[in-house]
Computed example of a mutant assay.
Amino acid sequence: MTASSTAPGGYRAARPRTAGYLLAAVVQALAFAVLFVVCVLTRPGQLAEDVLHGEAYRRAAEGGDSPQWLSFATTLVEGLQPWHFVIGLGVLAVVGLLRRRLRLTLAALATALGTMGLAELLKHVLLERPDLAGTAGAAATNSLPSGHTSAALGIGLGLVLLAPGRWRAPAAVVAAVAAGSMGAMVVEHGWHRLSDVLASALLASFVATVTAVLPVGSGRTRRVAAPPGAVLQAAVLVPALAAGALLLVYALPTGTLPVSALDLSAASGGLVAAATVLLVARALPREARRD
């Protein structure tokens, strides 16, 4: 997927082939479109999701308890407000400028802002939810993709892109926990349907793979190739995990697993969001200092 040469210190300097990353982005975009059609533009898809969405509303209204393992995850992020995400963008900018990596900072901000902005544009302007399931009212308004989950994913992947080599893995873990917790919370609290969170994962993967081709090396640094096959793995596995989550929640017979369908939906959304961060993080090129 990359053109490379050996650099001092044993690194493999690389400029990712644009075609490979753009092909991966096209796969994510197509998966997003299929998800929207199946879950939003068909009556069976709407009915399946609105059953759990209504259950989440009722649980929230009645003060029902979530399983402890799920409550712990959601408490990590349930207090976040939109201005917290603005602070997150500011942190990316400050970290990047302190590292004196202007182009890398712009790429990280493009990943975060692109994911967040495109999510809002799609949800509020470009996409509509027809009332095919007879659920007119608040539940019938379009909620795909999830803005909160998209923001957590975008800022998290921007942080991963910006992190120095030895800090990339810890940054990816932190970002995965935050994005996964956000994805679980918005479903569990009835803010979003499962498809909304899965769409956010596909959207973030799409934006990250597009911005990955931006030139980020400068000065005494050079770009280093992602592990072989990492781009292909992300392009295939993120849509596959999203499809698997839908099948697990909506096709598995009730009572098959010792958790409710709503809790399974929240956990599945969170796990896909977290896995998206980890998969895309491996596919992003990194910087290596020239010796």
Rank of each mutant, 00 (worst) to 15 (best):
V91C: 08
L92N: 06
L92E: 02
L92H: 04
L92V: 10
A93N: 01
A93W: 11
A93S: 05
V94P: 05
V94F: 10
V95K: 06
V95F: 13
G96R: 04
L97F: 12
L97D: 06
L98N: 10
L98R: 15
R99M: 08
R99D: 10
R99Q: 15
R99H: 13
R99Y: 09
R99W: 09
R100E: 10
R100C: 08
R100W: 08
R101Q: 15
L102V: 14
L102Q: 10
R103A: 05
L104C: 05
T105A: 05
T105H: 07
T105I: 08
T105V: 10
T105E: 05
L106W: 11
L106Y: 07
L106D: 07
A107N: 00
A107Y: 06
L109R: 07
L109T: 01
L109N: 00
A110K: 04
T111I: 15
T111Q: 03
A112E: 04
L113Y: 04
G114R: 05
T115A: 03
T115Q: 02
T115P: 03
T115R: 02
M116Q: 00
M116C: 01
M116D: 01
M116I: 12
M116F: 01
G117V: 03
L118W: 07
L118H: 03
A119V: 04
E120C: 06
L121Q: 07
L121A: 15
L121Y: 13
L121E: 02
L121I: 12
L121S: 06
L121N: 03
L121R: 01
K123A: 07
K123C: 08
H124L: 13
L126K: 02
L126W: 00
L126M: 06
L127K: 01
E128T: 14
E128I: 14
E128A: 15
R129C: 12
P130Y: 12
P130W: 12
P130I: 13
P130H: 11
D131P: 15
L132Y: 08
L132N: 07
L132I: 08
L132D: 11
A133W: 06
A133M: 07
A133Q: 09
A133R: 08
G134D: 07
G134K: 10
G134R: 11
T135R: 15
T135N: 14
T135V: 13
A136M: 04
G137F: 02
G137P: 04
G137N: 09
G137A: 09
A138R: 12
A138I: 09
A138V: 12
A138M: 09
A138W: 11
A139M: 10
A140H: 09
T141L: 14
T141S: 13
N142L: 12
S143L: 13
P145S: 03
P145V: 00
P145G: 00
S146D: 10
S146A: 12
S146E: 09
G147S: 13
G147E: 08
G147I: 11
H148E: 15
H148M: 14
H148K: 15
H148Y: 13
H148W: 13
T149L: 05
T149S: 12
T149Y: 06
T149W: 05
T149I: 08
T149A: 06
S150R: 02
